[in-house]
Amino acid sequence: MSILVVAEHDGKQIKAATLHAVTAATKLNAAVTLLLCGAGSGAVAESAAKIAGVAEVLVAEVADLDNGMAESMAPLLAHLAKGYSHIVVTATAFGKNILPRASALLDVQQISEVIEIKSADSFVRPIYAGNALATVKSNDKIKLLSIRMTAFEPAAVSGGSAAVKKLAAGDLGAVAQKLSQFKGASLSKSERPELTSAKIVVSGGRGMQNGENFKLLDALADKLGAAVGASRAAVDAGFVPNEYQVGQTGKVVAPELYVAVGISGAIQHLAGMKDSKVIVAINKDVDAPIFQVADYGLVADLFTAIPALTAAIKK
């Protein structure tokens, strides 16, 4: 048995999401290989080799693999697959985009959003927005797993000493393609921590009334060193962009502290945050379902409570 983990990086460092996938992979009790693709792979290989639990780092630094295009990544994974018993990605936008396409080329049924590894072929995954947990067994020759990052701790970024191997262009399979072309990205720049790895998350719902009012949450988040999220209702109403969305169809978070402000607590939102350690709900509707999952509930008008809370917290 041996495991291939597909890494995400920005050419400068490995993304935190990948560290969680490494931990999931080590639970399979076999050698873990980390695959780095595209521009800057060589530059991050050295730090990748130090991640605890990684035995080997493969570097595929060719232009065809820049930007993680599924049309190139899938044939690469299918080509490399024969050497491995499992291929693991984190269920991020990147992982969700590439792995199913590789599963088509391998004729394998992927297992999405794994939260527990029972054995080499049995896994637990949430269904129905986490309202049920399915234990499934795969009989495919190779297992393709996307893992839910909040279910596995991040691997330590030091302590490992993996061998780094550069893959030659001839070792990559049919990665050249003309189907799709990367045109650009507009990524939000923020001084705040990333939503999925923040220790504290402050989220707003439809109760915020408009996008402008999210500034109240920004001020609180800055005091707490928190990330800002939103419910699907707030995204749907156009208050904030979709990358804020916490829930079944957005991001799944599990911070130390989750503060839900003006969020009623729809099933699909709870799916994205109910594994948080401490949940605070601030809502003027005493019957809001969010109070059923909150450790601390404050029935209050958010427009007075949030400024008061911000003022009460020492930086």
């Binding site: 295009m69 991020t92 936008a93 990147f94 799709s180 072309q181 990367f182 045109k183 650009g184 990205a185 507009s186 990524l187 939000s188 990333e194 999925t196 962009p241 979709n242 990358e243 991001k251």
Partner: peptide, 9 residues
Amino acid sequence: EVDGGLETL
């Protein structure tokens, strides 16, 4: 819609 914002292909 990608994790950090938007991407165009």
